[in-house]
């Protein structure tokens, strides 16, 4: 495992920790899109179908369990916790995320590397992950006061796939048996590019020492 992949994973982990910290300590999920969180839970379920059958390393297995467990605990907090669920801003979270699921499933059935159940579900999870942030980005744009934890959560999440792209380039150059996975590369690129606007305003607010606010 190279430094880019590891740094990417740590960014991903950090984003989840920051979000759970906000929810657990502040007892608030204000500004967080439940729809994005539902999509991530679905992404992890479909991608980690091999969690008990395909062992790669202890690191991989532990990380998979952590991502699955954290995704479901976030969903539980936002839907069922008696204090946290009242801070969920349902009226701002209006993205039709079922259309994303449907579109990604159709695309996965049409464009994949291999037509097997495992592979199509894996491909679906790659496509869905690329666009899962959209409901959250729409919600951020509607939120006048984005708190630091929410801003950092989205920033870490955006950085993670960007680092994965460096990891793919590195593996492509250094590993003889590493196959060119154009499907993942394109999805990863789109996933990172969706954050471009957010990154711009995040860095700007950080440099000017101002509160983060996205233009409507």
């Amino acid at each position: 495992m190279n430094i880019f992949r590891f740094a990417g994973d740590m960014m991903h982990l950090l984003s989840v920790v920051v979000l759970l910290l906000k929810i657990h300590k502040m007892k608030s999920c204000a500004g967080i899109s439940l729809k994005t969180q539902e999509l991530y839970a679905l992404v992890f379920i479909c991608r980690y179908l091999d969690i008990f059958t395909g062992f790669i390393s202890l690191y991989n297995t532990i990380m998979k369990i952590v991502f699955l467990a954290s995704a479901f605990s976030i969903l539980w907090y936002m839907r069922s916790h008696k204090v946290v669920r009242q801070t969920y801003d349902k009226d701002q979270d209006t993205f039709r995320h079922y259309f994303l699921i449907l579109a990604c499933m159709v695309l996965a059935l049409l464009v994949h590397h291999k037509f097997t159940f495992r592979e199509v579900m894996w491909t679906f999870s790659i496509y869905l992950e690329a666009v899962a942030i959209l409901p959250q980005l729409v919600m951020l744009q509607r939120t006048r006061n984005i708190d630091n934890l929410t801003g950092n959560y989205v920033f870490f999440l955006g950085t993670y796939r960007g680092l994965y792209m460096l990891n793919w380039v590195y593996r492509y150059l250094t590993e003889v048996h590493y196959h060119h996975r154009w499907l993942t590369w394109i999805s990863g690129f789109i996933q990172t590019a969706l954050y471009a606007d957010f990154f711009y305003y995040y860095v700007k607010s950080w440099r000017n020492n101002e509160k983060l606010q996205l233009p409507a």
Binding site: R5, E119, Y164, N167
Partner: peptide, 10 residues
């Protein structure tokens, strides 16, 4: 192994 190389990532 053709299909496994990209599934070693998270």
């Amino acid at each position: 192994n053709e299909s496994d190389d990209s599934h070693d990532e998270l």
